[in-house]
Nucleic acid binder design. Sequence first.
DNA 1: AGGCTGACATCGC
DNA 2: CGCGATGCCAGCC
Length: 126
Amino acid sequence: MLSKKPSARLKQVLPSGAKDISFFEQVYDVVKLIPPGRVTSYGAIAFFLGARSSARMVGWAMNAAHGMPDIPAHRVVNRNGMLSGKMHFETPTRMESLLKKEKVKIKNDQVVDFEKLFWDPAVELS
DNA sequence: AGGCTGACATCGC
DNA sequence: CGCGATGCCAGCC
């Protein structure tokens, strides 16, 4: 996979009067609400959006979120608490660094105490 | 216009 | 208990 970036970047800025809220935008909305030092999973976000099987899309949304400073994609990991998307950052160590800055410990590309740091949108945003 | 792929998750064999 | 197959939505070839 070489340059496989969605240059489209969706609508990115949402033209004035953008009323059609796509799945992606909902994902961004949730990810933006993840507090520092906390993490969540692709599946949790997908589930919160009512599409438990659409976890893949969440990952794809993160890919499209590249370049959006408001989207803390590093706080989203897979269900095992593993930094599965670290290789998609500017540098493979970027994701880990950002998390460590937020006092999140990483070991073997995995979030330590993932269950304790887990931020469930279905609960927090209920 | 049709098909493959993807930073996941779950069910089936 | 482990690997294979399927679902899901959007973007790109």
